[in-house]
Design a protein around this nucleic acid. Structure first.
Length: 428
RNA sequence: GGAGGGAUGGCUGAGUGGUUGAAGGCACCGGUCUUGAAAACCGGAGUGUGGGAAACUGCACCGUGAGUUCGAAUCUCACUCCCUCCGCCA
C-alpha cells in the first residue's frame, strides 16, 4: 500500500523532511514517530520473510508436521506486523508534501509574496457598488428566495447573470482547446514548451470515499457534503474527479503532457467560515467552476504550473480585469501542495484584491497514492506529476465583472470578449 | 430492482491444488541484416518491498478482503467493479 510522501526521502533525509514540514506548521515529531515504527516494521518483515521461506521449503519437501508448527509461528508474527504497519502508515499519511525551493517560508497568508500586478484598477467618479447591490438591482442575483428554498449561502443567478455564466464557460473551453492560443501561452512561459490543448471533460460530481482519500482531499471531512445512503461525497471541485482519471494506470512518456479542462458544480459546506463573506455570491455552498488538471513528467511540472498561471492570466487580461499573482507561503499551502500560486482579482467595492484562482503543484504526492505512473522511453517507470488550477470560479468571476464593469447609471457593461456569447453589450 | 457472465503483467490472452511470477501475441529495449527504415531473425525485460557497497538475493503480488490447506491464480465466503438481458427512468 503506497502512502504519499516518498518513503526513501523520509528514511534517508529525515532532517530535511522535518524542516520542510515544520515550515508548513506540521509537528516534525511526526517524522520521528514514523521512523520509529518503520524500524520495527523492517525488523518484523525480515523475520517474517525468513519464516515464509522456510515454510515454502518445508512444503516442497512435504514435511507436513514441521510445516504445521511453522505455520502457527508465522500467524503470530503476521499479527504483530499488522499492528505495527497500521501505526506506521498512520504517521506516514499525515506527513505533508515538501514545499518547492521558491516557496516563501511563512506561518500564514501574511507571508505570501506578490509576484506581479497586472492591469490598473479603474477610477470611478462615484462610489462603486458591490456585486450583490448591482445584482439585485438588475435582477441578476436572488439570495433571499434561495435562502428560503435552500438555506444561506445559496443563490439564484438569473437573466444576464445566467447568460454570463455560460459565456464564461464557453469562452474558457474555446480558449483552452485552441491550439494557437495554447501554443503562445506555452511559449510565453518557456521557449519550446508543449502547448498541447486541453481535452474538455464533464466529470462526475459524486465520488467514493476511497478515491477522495487517495486524492488527499477527504480531510477536512466537515467541509464535504456526504450522502450516507450510498456512501458518496459531493466534489468540492472538478479536480476531485479529474485527478483520478488515470488512477492505477501507467501512461507512456510520449503521451505526456495530458491536459484536461473540466466543468462541474462544486459543493462546499464552508464549515469554519461562519460569518465570513456572508454577503452575495462570493462564498456559497454551490458554484460552478472550470478547472484544469494535468499529468506531466517530473522535470516539467513546475513549468506546467507556470503555464497554468499563464492561461489564467491570459483569460483575466483578455477580460480586462485587474489582478495580481501571488505565491503562497509554506504555512498557507495545502498538505498535498509543493507550490501554490493564487491569482487575486480587484474588487472595487472593497478596494482590495481577492482570491479568484489557484494553481497547485502536487508533484508525485497525489500520484503515488493514485498509482498513476509514467513509463519512460527507456522502460523505467516513475510516478507522474500532477497539477491543478482554476480556469474560472464562475460565481466569483461574475461578481468581479459586475463590480469592475459597473457604470454611474448602475448598469454593467459586458467584457468585449464575452459579448458574442451573451448577445449584448450592456446589462441594464 | 431481477437473471446470467466476467475481472490474470503496459495491452491482449492461456492457465482449475505442488519449482507458474505466470505460455502465446502486441507494444517496449538491445543486437543481426539494411545506404537508412520497415520486415524477418536472435536475445532481454513484470510490479512492490526487505537485506546488500555491489553482484545478487528473501518475501509479497493473478479485482479487494477474509477463509480452507503443509502448499492457492486455481477451492470456499463476503464485497467492489465491468459486460449482457429484463424492468424502471431524463
Amino acid at each position: 500500500m503506497n502512502a504519499m510522501l516518498d518513503i526513501d526521502l523520509i528514511r534517508n533525509e529525515p532532517e530535511r523532511v522535518k524542516k520542510a514540514i515544520a515550515s508548513k506548521n506540521t509537528d516534525s515529531k511526526l517524522v520521528d514517530d514514523f521512523l520509529w515504527f518503520d524500524a520495527k516494521w523492517r525488523a518484523i518483515t525480515n523475520r517474517l520473510d525468513g519464516l515464509r521461506a522456510r515454510q515454502k521449503q518445508l512444503s516442497m519437501e512435504r514435511k507436513i508436521d514441521i510445516a504445521k508448527q511453522n505455520k502457527e509461528v508465522i500467524k503470530g508474527v503476521e499479527e504483530e506486523l499488522k499492528v505495527v504497519e497500521v501505526k506506521r502508515d498512520e504517521f506516514w499519511m499525515r506527513i505533508p508534501n515538501i514545499p518547492s525551493d521558491d516557496t516563501p517560508i511563512g506561518k500564514d497568508e501574511i507571508e505570501n509574496k506578490v509576484i506581479r500586478v497586472v492591469g490598473k484598477p479603474k477610477k470611478f467618479d462615484f462610489k462603486p457598488k458591490d456585486h450583490l447591490e448591482l445584482g439585485e438591482a438588475l435582477g441578476l442575483i436572488d439570495v433571499e428566495t434561495a435562502a428560503k428554498v435552500s438555506g444561506t449561502r445559496f443563490a439564484y443567478l438569473k437573466g444576464a447573470a445566467a447568460q454570463l455564466e455560460f459565456a464564461l464557460v464557453h469562452y474558457a473551453l474555446a480558449t483552452l482547446t485552441n491550439p494557437n492560443v495554447m501554443r503562445s501561452a506555452a511559449e510565453g512561459v518557456k521557449s519550446g514548451y508543449s502547448g498541447k490543448p486541453f481535452v474538455p471533460v464533464v466529470p462526475p460530481v459524486l465520488i467514493r470515499p476511497e478515491v477522495m482519500r487517495r486524492m488527499g482531499r477527504l480531510e477536512p471531512k466537515e467541509e464535504r457534503y456526504h450522502i450516507p445512503s450510498d456512501d458518496l461525497y459531493l466534489v468540492g471541485s472538478a479536480e476531485h474527479t479529474l485527478g483520478p482519471l488515470h488512477m492505477d494506470q501507467t501512461i507512456l512518456e510520449k503521451d505526456l503532457p495530458i491536459r484536461y479542462v473540466g466543468f462541474s458544480t462544486s459543493f462546499r459546506r464552508e464549515a469554519g467560515s461562519y460569518g465570513k463573506d456572508t454577503r452575495g455570491i462570493f462564498r456559497v455552498h454551490q458554484f460552478d467552476k472550470v478547472e484544469m488538471e494535468s499529468f506531466t513528467l517530473p522535470e516539467h511540472s513546475i513549468t506546467e504550473q507556470d503555464f497554468f498561471v499563464g492561461v489564467q492570466e491570459y483569460l483575466m487580461w483578455s477580460l480586462e480585469l485587474p489582478y495580481r499573482v501571488i505565491i503562497c507561503s509554506t504555512g498557507d499551502q495545502g498538505d498535498p501542495d509543493a507550490r501554490h500560486l493564487d491569482l487575486e482579482t480587484w474588487f472595487p467595492s472593497e478596494g482590495i484584491y481577492r482570491e479568484t484562482h489557484s494553481a497547485d503543484l502536487m508533484t508525485d504526492y497525489q500520484s503515488r497514492r493514485l498509482n498513476t505512473k509514467v513509463r519512460r522511453v527507456d522502460g523505467k517507470t516513475e510516478f507522474a506529476h500532477m497539477n491543478d488550477g482554476t480556469v474560472f470560479a464562475v460565481g466569483r468571476t461574475i461578481a468581479a465583472i459586475l463590480e469592475n464593469y459597473q457604470t454611474k447609471e448602475g448598469e454593467v457593461e459586458i467584457p468585449k470578449v464575452l459579448q458574442k456569447y451573451v448577445g449584448k453589450k450592456i446589462i441594464s
